[in-house]
């Protein structure tokens, strides 16, 4: 049970990392591989606000989300110039990763920040023989809340319907007189803000490091492939599945733990190429 609980806790972090990316790829058809860098910026902003400036942690999380959302506006303007061109989008992404990473190293130094200290989140909750650190619970709560909000917006609102329709046939949506570009900007800002919130929350257990731009992106992409692009439910299921798989593989076959999630991805690609959600991106 302890291992399963650990996996759910890890899965919550993974969901926060991946949900914004899934939304961006699904809604816009843009391969924003700079998403990991946005997460990284969120982690450093969270550290600056909470540790550097001593602000309450919820303020730091919101600040990280706002900062990352603003960065999302800039990224959207850049990706707008290479619509429907995946090769160019990937090249642009890698350029942005290097630029953002170097700016972060310049501003915060290359030395990683250790996990953030938040006094009211110290300790753990014990349920029978299972111990769950409070920081993990906090991450899980935020992760589930974000999942719920994203699911509600995507599945139960008019805006979500436009986004889903845009994923399937953007030209038809435009033909109906809907200004899809503004929706796309909004989705980009939302996805980036979620990445910023993920960075600040993930910082509670992972700290902040300039290596996260790549490390986080790699995990997030695997989750998007396994969950299916653009699906909140699929991303959530994939995150939990991979979190639990990672926990059990580290516990039972430590030597193989680093390849377990890639083996799962390969299996999903063979059995169900569209991912758990079965949704195709445009």
């Amino acid at each position: 049970m302890q291992t399963f609980s650990n996996g759910i806790a890890v899965g919550a972090v993974l969901f926060l990392m991946a949900s914004g990316l899934s939304l961006l790829i699904g809604a816009m058809g843009v391969l924003d591989l700079a998403h990991g860098a946005v997460y990284m910026v969120g982690a450093y902003l969270g550290w600056t606000l909470a540790i550097g400036l001593g602000q309450p942690y919820p303020v730091a999380v919101i600040g990280a989300g706002v900062g990352a959302g603003l960065l999302g506006v800039v990224l959207e303007r850049l990706f707008r110039r290479v619509p429907g061109m995946p090769d160019e989008q990937i090249l642009l992404s890698f350029g942005l990763i290097y630029v953002i990473t170097n700016v972060v190293q310049w501003v915060w130094s290359p030395i990683a920040k250790s996990p953030f200290d938040v006094s009211w989140l110290e300790g753990s909750v014990h349920v029978a023989s299972v111990a769950i650190p409070n920081v993990r619970l906090a991450i899980a709560v935020v992760g589930f809340a974000v999942a719920l909000v994203l699911w509600y917006v995507q599945e139960r609102t008019r805006t979500g319907a436009i986004v889903r329709a845009g994923m399937d046939d953007a030209n038809m949506v435009r033909a109906l007189g809907i200004h899809l570009d503004w929706v796309v900007v909004g989705v980009f800002v939302l996805g980036s803000a979620v990445a910023g919130i993920a960075g600040a929350m993930g910082g509670l257990v992972l700290g902040a490091s300039s290596a996260q731009a790549i490390d986080v992106l790699l995990l997030a992409l695997v989750i998007v492939v396994v969950g299916g692009v653009g699906s909140v439910v699929g991303t959530f299921a994939a995150s939990m599945l991979i979190g639990v798989l990672d926990a059990f593989s580290r516990s039972l076959v430590p030597g193989m733990s680093s390849v377990a999630i890639y083996a799962l991805m390969a299996l999903v690609l063979v059995v169900r190429p569209t991912g758990l959600s079965g949704r195709l991106a445009r």
């Binding site: 790829i25 391969l31 990473t101 790549i214 492939v225 991805m265």
Partner: peptide, 25 residues
């Protein structure tokens, strides 16, 4: 097609992690 591009990106990223290209190294 999209999934193929994503998988290709994962492959590139995995290589980047393995050769340590991340973080402006």
């Amino acid at each position: 097609m999209k999934v193929k591009v994503l998988v290709a990106a994962i492959g590139v990223l995995a290589v980047m992690v393995l050769v340590g290209c991340g973080g402006g190294e």
